[in-house]
Design a binder for these strands. Sequence first.
DNA 1: TTCATTTCTTAACTTAAGTTAACTTCTTAC
DNA 2: GTAAGAAGTTAACTTAAGTTAAGAAATGAA
Lengths: 191, 191
Amino acid sequence: MQNILFDFISRYVDLNEDEKNALIELDIFKSFKKGTVLLEQGQKSSDGYFVLEGCLRTYYVIDGEEKTTAFYTELEGITPHCVLTKEPSEYYVTCVEDCILSVANPDMEVEIFTKFPKFEKMCMVLSEELLVKQQIDFDAFKTSSPEQRYLNLLEKRPDLIQRVPQHQLASFLGITPQSLSRLRARLQKKR
Amino acid sequence: MQNILFDFISRYVDLNEDEKNALIELDIFKSFKKGTVLLEQGQKSSDGYFVLEGCLRTYYVIDGEEKTTAFYTELEGITPHCVLTKEPSEYYVTCVEDCILSVANPDMEVEIFTKFPKFEKMCMVLSEELLVKQQIDFDAFKTSSPEQRYLNLLEKRPDLIQRVPQHQLASFLGITPQSLSRLRARLQKKR
DNA sequence: TTCATTTCTTAACTTAAGTTAACTTCTTAC
DNA sequence: GTAAGAAGTTAACTTAAGTTAAGAAATGAA
């Protein structure tokens, strides 16, 4: 299981055996059952997650309705805002599927960054990449209609459409489940 | 003019006179006329901008239509994607107003980071803050209607509504200029 | 397996956004 | 100051999303 993580890291920095062992000793690999709530609205936390296997979902509860805003799948990481702001979380984080995650908190980061500064460099590159990716996603969302967003999702993350319930996808696309259902029927008819 | 920048920086790190002088010597303060195009779609660039005075706008041209995706005002910075990806830019960057900007490229960053490592730390904190802010903005956009987005903008960035043309605000809100006009008329009637 | 719950779909109706076009108002360059 | 172009508003019409509700399908727990 570590290998998935090491392969990912090796895209950014080379690890020697010492470094690999240091990571393993942190004992950061954890399994979670589908449906597990990792973080609740209103709760404080200092844990970040990196997905080795499975799928995480973030959602708000607004007027009693779940509003899904993001999914995180293999090789994607999430640092909830509340980890950075130290305020209670505005949203939930849950497992859409059974998950294997690497869980880390800032203390562990400090420890590993001190021992192996190259990890800090890697994190900088990662967060830079993330910022670009997110801005582009936001731009694409703003400049497209719900139908275009759905088609774009089909193209860019077809796996999500298979593994995630429709009503969660719907709010991720910024529409209601009924609208998504209709939209799909409309597209089906077209072809 | 430097003082605006120094005051901003002092929120994050303390600067001594040497460091201030080093910054001034980089000669990064530039003035631009309203309407100036700083970056064109399809063009490569390595310049990032920090707004000391004025307002920048990023927009795509899709099917011959301008789609505005972001505004940057006092004390906000923008590093166009193409600076990081080294690919031609997907969007334009222009001055909505006369601007005083601090312009920096990666070479200058390397130079200043080498001399004064504390700047690197500051940039990490800044980009972390930015990532959080952007994620929250995206979440708010996804989970609201055009009307709610407009009301939210009125509350959070009332200055933008004054200083930016409506048709640019409209696509920033993800709607057409006509819809924004109607939406405003609708709200006016309500009160 | 069965029963309860959740999810998905469909439909009818309401509301608002997109589109096209005409007209007014505002800018700005000459 | 005037004329040309850009920006903003309004209206009529089209399209699609929100809402409410009902029923079908799928899921999961006992």
